[in-house]
Amino acid sequence: MARRKKVYEGKTKILYEGPEPGTLIQYFKDDAAVQTTSRPAPADGRGVLNNRLSEFFMNGLNAVGIPTHFMRRLNMREQLIRMAEIIPVVITVRNYAAGDLSTRLGIPEGAALPRPIVEFNFKDDKLGDPLVTEEHIIAFGWAAQQDLDDMVALALRVNDFLSGAMLAAGIRLADFRLEAGRIWEGDFMRLVVADEISPDSCRLWDLRQGDTDRDGNVREPGPLADVYTELARRLGVLPSNVTHTTKPTLIN
């Protein structure tokens, strides 16, 4: 088999040239997206599950008219995607206070927000993906105002879809991260959901935990245990030959 040309390698994925112009092959690695040491700790099967889960969500988004770069899954670790011009801004949608938002604003962890909040981070690993405003994005030319308006609208539509899908599986979507890209169709640009949607980019809380503790106190939803396998099992996409368990990756 001919050796494929690598286009890009990140912490969790490798992109190779696709079989046709304007396409790429996205390969899912087992490395974690967020790490606490100098190197990510591999977990056997994580990439397989992320590939299947991202396929599930991307197909669902496409089915309800939310455009993505996803075309089809090729095998257990690879999928065919359309080449997109990635906007260097990470979009975070928050439904509940958690992580960095609670720390910055002093809001109790787990508090429901009055409405979904959309935040932006400049996509740069060396800088730690710093929080930025719309003014920064426009001033530095990362996206135009119309792009930003479209990105917010796209992210909120994705939030509606994901929140419903997770709720049906007994899971609360506290927040998630999203990337958007531009795909050119002739002379016209189309904004699409890019990268992936998987547990690596979501904060998920289990609603199937007991309602009260041993003292009769109301129990708040907690992190979904063994998030990759449990989420895949509840959504019906768990491959029968994957038995590993791993801890959830949370948004800071």
Rank of each mutant, 00 (worst) to 15 (best):
Q146C: 00
P130R: 00
D149M: 05
N217K: 14
L204W: 10
I171M: 09
Q209Y: 03
E119K: 01
F176D: 02
D200V: 01
V192Y: 03
I197Q: 06
V193E: 02
R172H: 09
W205A: 03
F120V: 00
A174M: 12
F176S: 08
R172G: 08
G216P: 10
N121E: 14
D187W: 10
N121L: 10
K123G: 03
R157E: 13
I197C: 07
H136R: 05
R208D: 14
D150N: 13
A168G: 13
R190Y: 09
S201L: 10
R172D: 10
A174Q: 13
M189P: 14
V192G: 04
T212R: 14
L162F: 08
R208A: 12
I197Y: 06
I183D: 08
G170D: 07
D200P: 05
A180V: 12
W142P: 00
D215Q: 12
V132T: 02
F140H: 13
A153C: 00
L207W: 08
V193R: 01
D187H: 12
E179T: 01
V193K: 04
G170L: 07
R214A: 15
V158L: 08
P130S: 02
W205T: 03
I183S: 06
E179G: 02
G128R: 04
A144T: 15
R157N: 09
M166T: 00
A194W: 06
G186I: 09
V132C: 00
R214G: 10
G128L: 02
L148A: 03
D187V: 11
R208F: 08
V158G: 03
L131S: 03
D125K: 12
F188N: 14
P199G: 03
T212P: 00
V118N: 03
L148Y: 04
D211E: 14
D150T: 11
N121Y: 13
R182D: 00
W184F: 11
G164P: 01
A155G: 07
A169C: 10
F122H: 09
R172F: 04
F140R: 14
A168K: 15
V193G: 02
A180G: 04
A144L: 11
L167T: 10
A143P: 03
M189E: 15
L162R: 04
Q146L: 09
I183L: 12
R190V: 15
T133Q: 08
I138V: 15
G210M: 13
L131R: 02
D200H: 09
G181K: 05
L162M: 14
F176A: 05
M166R: 02
W205H: 05
E135G: 06
Q146K: 13
A144K: 15
D125S: 13
F161I: 07
S198I: 08
P199Q: 06
F161S: 07
L191K: 01
L156S: 00
N159P: 06
D187E: 15
D200Y: 07
T133E: 10
L207Y: 09
W184N: 11
A139Y: 13
A194P: 03
L167E: 14
F161M: 11
R203K: 10
A139T: 14
A139I: 04
A168T: 09
E135S: 10
R190W: 07
L173K: 04
E185W: 00
L131E: 01
V152M: 02
D187L: 12
D195T: 07
Q145I: 08
R182W: 14
